[in-house]
Simulated scan of single mutants.
Amino acid sequence: MSIKKKFLKGKPVVKITFEVAKEIANSAKSVSLVGEFNNWDPSASPMKSTKEGKFSTTVDLESGKEYQFRYLIDETRWVNDSEADKFVPTVYGDSDNSVVVV
């Protein structure tokens, strides 16, 4: 997994590329990036599969904030990003959410 941040000069926006490794996706048919920035909507940020078997997507996020997120694999399995800036408990208290700080 990886998170790559690209800060834009003169703009309060950061382009963030999220990637789920082939080993984590494990022959998945779909992976979605789900978080505060898209109202936790699994259909809002579908990730595209690459030839190498990874899944990737890029989103623009307002800088100076923290955003909780997780990956949803095949609409059934939630996964955190091991490269997240930090982790916080979910509102359900049964797991943690990944957090990206921009």
Rank of each mutant, 00 (worst) to 15 (best):
V59D: 01
S98K: 03
S30E: 09
P42V: 01
V91K: 08
S30T: 15
V59P: 07
V102I: 11
I24H: 03
V20T: 10
E66Y: 02
I73C: 02
V101C: 11
G53N: 04
T50K: 10
W40D: 02
K5E: 12
N97C: 09
G35V: 02
S56E: 13
S27Y: 13
K22T: 11
G35D: 11
I73H: 11
S27I: 04
N38P: 11
G53H: 12
L72D: 14
P12H: 12
S49I: 01
V91C: 05
N26H: 09
K65E: 11
Y92V: 09
Q68I: 00
V91M: 09
N26E: 10
V13H: 03
K65V: 00
N26F: 13
N80Q: 09
V20A: 05
D96Q: 15
D41T: 01
D41H: 02
V14A: 15
F55I: 12
S2K: 13
N80D: 08
L72R: 09
P89Y: 03
G53Y: 11
E52A: 15
L8F: 00
S56L: 14
S95M: 11
K54H: 05
D81K: 08
V100R: 11
S98I: 08
K48Y: 04
I3N: 11
S95T: 02
Y71V: 04
D94N: 15
D85E: 10
K5A: 08
W40H: 07
I3C: 06
D74S: 04
V20F: 04
V59Q: 05
K6Q: 14
G64M: 09
S56G: 03
K11A: 13
S27L: 06
S56P: 00
F7Y: 15
D94L: 08
S56D: 02
E23C: 04
K5W: 13
E36L: 06
W78F: 10
S43P: 01
P12I: 07
G64R: 13
V102F: 06
K15S: 13
S98T: 08
A25N: 06
K65L: 06
K15A: 13
E19V: 15
S30A: 10
F55Y: 14
K15I: 09
S63T: 09
R70H: 10
A21Y: 01
T17Q: 13
K11L: 15
T76P: 00
V20W: 02
M1C: 07
E52F: 00
M47W: 01
V99C: 04
I16Y: 03
K11V: 10
E83N: 11
N97L: 15
N97V: 05
Y71Q: 09
F69M: 03
K9I: 01
V31N: 05
W78D: 12
E75R: 08
M1T: 13
Y92C: 05
S27D: 14
A44R: 03
K65C: 00
S43C: 02
G10Q: 12
S30M: 00
D60E: 11
F7K: 14
D94W: 12
I3A: 04
A25M: 10
I24V: 13
D94H: 12
V100K: 03
N39H: 13
T50F: 08
V91R: 11
